[in-house]
Design a protein around this nucleic acid. Sequence first.
DNA 1: CTGTTAGCGCTTTCAG
DNA 2: CTGAAAGCGCTAACAG
Lengths: 333, 333
Amino acid sequence: MPGTYKDIQKRTGLSLSTISKYFNGGHLREENRSAIEKAIRDLDFRVNAFARSLKSRRSGTIGILIPELSSTFNSTIMERVCETLRKHGYGSIVCTCNGRKDAEKSSLSFLLDKMVDGIITIPIDESGTYLKAISDQNVPIVLIDHLATDFKTDAVIVNNREAGRTAAREFLSHGHTSLGILCGPKEMDTMRLRSEGFIETLKGAGGQAFAKYCQLTLQSGYIAAKSLLTPRSNTDTITGIFCTNYELTLGAYIAIQELHKRIPEEISVIGFDNMLLSGILQPSLTMIIQPVEKIADTAAELMLKRLADPENKKIRIAELRTQLLHGSSVAPL
Amino acid sequence: MPGTYKDIQKRTGLSLSTISKYFNGGHLREENRSAIEKAIRDLDFRVNAFARSLKSRRSGTIGILIPELSSTFNSTIMERVCETLRKHGYGSIVCTCNGRKDAEKSSLSFLLDKMVDGIITIPIDESGTYLKAISDQNVPIVLIDHLATDFKTDAVIVNNREAGRTAAREFLSHGHTSLGILCGPKEMDTMRLRSEGFIETLKGAGGQAFAKYCQLTLQSGYIAAKSLLTPRSNTDTITGIFCTNYELTLGAYIAIQELHKRIPEEISVIGFDNMLLSGILQPSLTMIIQPVEKIADTAAELMLKRLADPENKKIRIAELRTQLLHGSSVAPL
DNA sequence: CTGTTAGCGCTTTCAG
DNA sequence: CTGAAAGCGCTAACAG
């Protein structure tokens, strides 16, 4: 039983409203202030958040809903978002939905049951219908990675298609025209855009792409890369591989090493996502870098702003830019 | 404004207590039940968790505090714990503390501010003094990975020292006596035990260990492995490497590939943690496997049991066993 | 600057 | 099986 204002009242003789004022930043006489502080220490007092929330209608808690945590991108985003929110006094209730729409919906409902003040999510359902319904109940939503077709709200996205184009151009400028690409799952919007940008640019320049769709795991990337590098006919030999996320990059890199193909002499590579990885490998990998920290910070910031000013109906969409990090893994052909 | 029992009352003519009973699993007349259900649908009603918590003194929320999320072990544990708790109606408020004691303490305090019903944590501070204080306020604690010296509570641990010994024995039985080990940070209890078990067994058999302490990242593992594999004198050439976690295993594997050392002909390897990884690499890696899912499930289960029966003071410590997965990465010398 | 008081929405006796 | 009423701990008028 952690003590209430009444206990402080007993020890200080002050009224409940004075004590309340102490906790809510009002001015009080110095002696009263210190009397309250003494009582707080003695009681190891903590304001009861339930009662406070009951009045204020705010939980001080944000829901974070993402497909899963096994990809570093997601876990990095999550960790950083939680940290930032925490600095502003908000707790983060985290849910995953295994990339499934039904689980997404039930998780959202669960978060509402937990009375979250807002939701930051990497959405699955493209339409956003259910998110819209939530938003209509005045629970602000911030999207990461994708926009929704039927629901406009604050969001942080990245120029994925352009990232794919950039990678293709980088290959093309070195004379590569026959290229492999590890695409990730077809259903994932982000991955699709990266792949499309890459493939269309390549084709536009008369090149050809050999696409492998796969799960976003090191294992899948490894298998897909091996299969790409094991030519089925003499005609379709690729001279480079574009990996569209971190896990795929790692998997492909390991596959290439095991096949004893030298980078970049025998095979050129452009990876994705992880700056640190680029630096240590030999040769250093050319990579498309996503501003992961920036994405997380922006998402948290959009949410905090929205919470601070709920009346403002202006929708903010931040489109952040990926960046080409030049390494030594693309050789002139 | 999401509606209250009063709104349901207006639509059904029933009293508040009847409505309350509906939501708390009492028996009511069928017609009243369906009247309430209709009102719920019409109103899109949701019980106000604040008011409910104010009475019940339970938030339906568990705090999860871990050092960081960048290691797959931690993020896997976290995801799984959250999922399991969620299935039982509990939300998870997640905090990270960057492996720092001060941040650990302030995060714990933060979680208490958020009125969590319990805390599941991979603790940093070995003593557990602060955790004990929390536990004394009747907030149950479940530890993962380490016990605390000054505080006994429910915990899930793994036989880390034995895991190290097993790895050493596996090498020894193949005739290896001069071995490298990637230890991870000295301060981390789990890593220290793995290393100690390995080193003492090796030395006990007359072998020698070359230990590298490093961060638990692919990058650090890569660098440490490279340095181990670049002999400084002619005498201390190692014939095998033990990697004490997943990221280190990956880093070492990449380093070995880049140095064009063949596994296991030129260098033997025992990895840690990730079963899937073992399967895909060629040759398949011999690994020590932690039962990650089991760890997470057990932790969640201990917490749920404790919450279900707060009077029971019996402390439960689950020591789970790691397992040696035989691959082809250790060759007879 | 401080005190009194009426709720916030729900649960829970206790009557009926 | 249902209803009336008190109260969980805090906040915010309002009055002093």
